[in-house]
Amino acid sequence: MLAKRRGHVALISVHADPATLATNGIASVQSAYVKKLGEGLAQMGWQVDMFTRCTDPEQLSEVEHLDGCRTIRLMAGEAAPLSADDTYQVLPDFVKAFVQYQSKSGILYPLIHTHSWLSGWVGLELKQRQLIKLIHTHHALGSDRYQDATTIPMLASAQINTEKACRDGADQVIALHPDGESSHQGAIALDGAATVDELDVMYRSLLNQLHCEFFAVQSVS
């Protein structure tokens, strides 16, 4: 039996579809992790919607994994597989589609958990527009990948800058390597990803903070 519902949380994984696990490399690992995380959180009582980009016009717009956990595919750019460069270009469309989905469904997500830098970009844009708590998980750091490079490609610069912005702008950053960056307030240094139990505690704490902030804003007005 599922636990009492604790509220809505959006997991955003723009380039790695949790309902399609046949991709390769890092995206495949991220897809599997986000799906497992979403299902685990749903079993603990969260209403979890996992948002990704539609890559095939024949795909279902929604895939229900279990009670309280589903994948939602948004239209952002062409409904086809895109390179990282092209995906970066359609991120504003993804933000627009996400906001439109919220308006149409009547669901507001007080907690948004983004995965990898492309999704982090989306989360930061949403945080500027809405009163939310943003959690971000790095799945691979561009600063690690390009630390010895003599020249950094334009997209790599965008990745590194977005990762820094997530470090400074997110309410919680997860899965950082135990180096200087992990000392930033709100960051957790972990060898690997956070567990469902750890996230459950974190989510409830952030939701309580959001509740206090909301009523503080209301009282001022």
Score class of each variant (00 low, 15 high):
147 Q>T: 14
112 I>T: 03
218 Q>L: 13
138 H>I: 09
134 L>H: 04
131 L>R: 05
183 S>G: 14
16 A>T: 05
28 S>H: 07
14 V>M: 11
2 L>F: 12
91 L>D: 01
141 L>E: 06
130 Q>P: 01
73 R>H: 07
51 F>A: 04
87 T>L: 15
82 L>G: 14
126 L>N: 01
131 L>N: 05
97 A>M: 05
108 L>I: 09
156 A>F: 00
221 S>I: 13
150 T>S: 12
153 P>E: 12
133 K>V: 01
4 K>N: 15
174 I>W: 02
183 S>N: 14
200 D>M: 10
43 Q>M: 14
68 G>K: 04
144 D>F: 05
167 R>G: 03
146 Y>S: 03
207 L>Q: 08
102 Q>S: 09
182 S>T: 12
64 E>G: 03
105 S>G: 06
130 Q>W: 08
206 L>Y: 00
142 G>E: 01
43 Q>I: 05
215 F>D: 13
96 K>N: 08
159 Q>D: 08
165 A>V: 00
125 E>T: 02
183 S>C: 13
166 C>T: 01
50 M>N: 02
122 V>S: 02
209 Q>E: 10
101 Y>L: 07
160 I>R: 02
109 Y>G: 04
160 I>N: 02
200 D>K: 12
72 I>D: 03
202 M>C: 13
124 L>P: 00
99 V>N: 05
163 E>C: 02
179 D>A: 12
